[in-house]
């Protein structure tokens, strides 16, 4: 395990999320870097797994509970804010955990954690940010993920963070439309999922920006997988990646 995972309950905790653990092992470290620039001292939460969302959204509550339990217990030991670099995981924890754990031994813990989770861009909105190094002034297309925009109602913070870093933020037409991922939806109804991704990729391409930034790796993973199949000249970056780009990559 990397050495920056140390116990310090007073710090802001960062939950890496299972998708970042799998696909972007350095994302959590980048989140720490971005937070540090905003004057927030943070640490990566230890002994966590996943928030349980994949099973919960597919209809399997007890499986979701089983997976989320270690995460609830680990985070309950911390104090202060819990920063999550994903809109949908944040929504899962803040909106659904209290119900998921209601009537179990972990109910109080789940409520406590639910009250303290905050999505990354929201955590940034609180502080003031010096512009990032890297490719400032470059236009980026922003993909507002469904759960961030509608479950959490967060539309301004990520855009503001990108602008503060010097980017021109471009919006795809009908930006509210989902990218088609939807967890198991992507494999239960693959053709529909791909059709949705294609429509989203077309509107992202039409912005003229070649970098697409979002706050949910799941959408970005899905769009990137389809974009590469279509050989579209787009690259996809999580907000934490975009804000920690070194030079022009």
């Amino acid at each position: 395990m990397p050495s920056f995972e140390h116990e310090s309950p007073a710090l802001t905790n960062v939950l890496p999320t299972c998708l970042a653990d799998t696909l972007r092992p350095t994302l959590a470290a980048r989140v720490l870097k971005v937070l540090a620039r905003h004057g927030v001292a943070a640490t990566i939460a230890r002994r966590t797994t996943c928030c349980g969302q994949p099973a919960y959204n597919a209809g399997y509550e007890s499986e979701a509970r089983r997976v989320a339990r270690p995460t609830v217990r680990a985070l309950a030991k911390s104090q202060g804010q819990i920063v999550v670099p994903s809109g949908s995981c944040t929504a899962m924890m803040s909106r659904h955990w209290p119900a998921l754990f209601a009537g179990t031994a972990d109910e109080t813990r789940a409520r406590d954690v639910a009250a303290r989770v905050i999505e990354l861009s929201q955590a940034l909105a609180a502080g003031s940010a010096p512009p990032a190094a890297g490719d400032r002034d470059k236009p980026v297309a922003y993909h507002g993920s469904c759960h961030l925009e509608r479950e959490l109602g967060e539309r301004d913070a990520p855009r503001a963070a990108l602008r503060a870093a010097g980017h021109e933020v471009r919006e795809p037409t009908e930006g509210y439309l989902c990218c088609g991922f939807g967890g198991t939806f992507a494999v239960k109804l693959p053709a529909v999922s791909v059709a949705m991704a294609d429509e989203k990729l077309d509107s992202l391409s039409a912005t003229g920006a070649t970098t697409v930034v979002g706050c949910d790796l799941s959408c970005l993973m899905h769009l990137e997988a389809r974009a590469r199949t279509r050989r579209l000249p787009l690259q996809f970056r999580h907000l934490a990646e975009q804000l920690t780009v070194r030079g022009d990559e």
Binding site: L23, R24, V187, A225, R226
Partner: peptide
């Protein structure tokens, strides 16, 4: 199964540092 349902029209997700 589900793996093939993903990969038929989408590449395998890339692991990136």
């Amino acid at each position: 199964g589900w793996a093939g349902a993903w990969t038929r029209d989408r590449v395998v997700p890339r692991v990136r540092r």
